[in-house]
């Protein structure tokens, strides 16, 4: 594997990291490197500077409080997945991470790195939107926060400006009576999704009373399914789910055609995924992807 020439810098503080990023137009943050390094090896990415945040103080914090879970930028996916405290506060995180690649990759890959990379078929951006997570961002102008719902703009494109880094992401605790889950179709275990669904459903009384549903792998960006979110309200699993199916199918009108699947397939599959997972959530109190 043969990346083009680049410089490497390993700062100790966030300030230093931000300053370093500001020195180059093409600088990139290196966290787990599970997407960036392959892209560099193929020379699809040719940053002239890598700023490795692995040694930055405080970015390795993983804190669980009454409000939710705060995940620092250098915290690996495996660490989040293996924490029982995290699973207690935000059960959807462990469920979702089980779909993220393979163990070896999760041992290196970071939660925030995946969010910053914003692969349209990745699980974590969709989960962040479904959970109402908040990004903590530091840049030359200081600190700001962005709701996950406003963060993902397109394929590999986020609200992050050049010179900014995500310092952490906050996932709010799952409210009582809500179930958060993620399910996907991939041709192989551990692959990026061909069609995926992340959702938080309020199902307290056996009927869906509130929903945030996000598709991923379907179009160019993880997207709220506004039609299905409406159609699912009041759903109690009693009918054949065809209205919900149709709504999800329509939500995926901008589905992509690629070497793996047709757009039509993605739309049908999203419809099927929604119906079967909502049913399962109502029946079991959690998604099929558990």
């Amino acid at each position: 594997m043969k990346p083009a020439v680049f410089d490497y810098y390993r700062p100790a503080t966030v300030e230093d990291a931000v300053a370093a990023l500001g020195t180059s137009e093409t600088a990139k943050v290196l966290a787990g490197g599970q997407s960036l390094i392959p892209a560099m090896n193929f020379r699809l990415a040719q940053p002239d500077l890598l700023v490795d945040i692995g040694g930055v103080e405080d970015l390795d914090r993983l804190e669980v409080g009454s409000e939710g879970v705060m995940i620092g930028a250098s915290v690996t996916q495996s660490r989040v997945m293996s924490s029982d405290e995290v699973a207690g506060a935000v059960p959807g995180l462990r469920r979702a991470l089980g779909h993220v690649a393979h163990l070896q990759i999760r041992n290196r890959g970071t939660v925030c790195g995946s969010l910053a990379h914003a692969d349209p078929a990745a699980e974590l951006p969709a989960l962040a939107i479904a959970c109402g997570a908040t990004m903590f961002i530091r840049g030359p102008a200081g600190e700001r926060t962005v709701d996950a719902g406003d963060f993902f703009l397109g394929p590999f494109w986020t609200d992050l400006a050049h010179g900014e880094i995500i310092t952490g992401v906050h996932f709010p605790s799952e409210p009582a009576g809500t179930v958060t889950f993620l399910d996907e179709l991939a041709w192989r275990a551990g692959d990026f999704a061909i069609t995926g669904l992340a959702a938080a459903l309020a199902t307290g009384d056996g009927t869906v009373s509130g929903a945030r549903m996000v598709s991923f792998g379907v179009s160019g960006v993880a997207s709220r399914m506004t039609g299905a979110e409406q159609a699912v309200l009041g759903f109690a699993g009693g009918d054949d789910g065809s209205d919900l199916y149709e709504a999800a199918y329509e939500d995926a009108a901008d589905a992509v055609d690629d070497v793996h699947a047709t757009a039509e397939y993605r739309r049908e599959a999203l419809g099927a995924l929604v119906v079967r997972n909502v049913r399962a959530a109502l029946a079991n109190g959690n998604g099929r992807g558990v």
Binding site: L185, W187, I194, H260, A261, T262, E264, Y265
Partner: peptide, 19 residues
């Protein structure tokens, strides 16, 4: 024979509008 191919075969076998 991928899931996408299976769905396509089902659609084609069921004719237009088939689900």
């Amino acid at each position: 024979i991928t899931p996408s191919a299976v769905r396509q075969a089902i659609r084609e076998a069921s004719g237009p509008g088939g689900s």
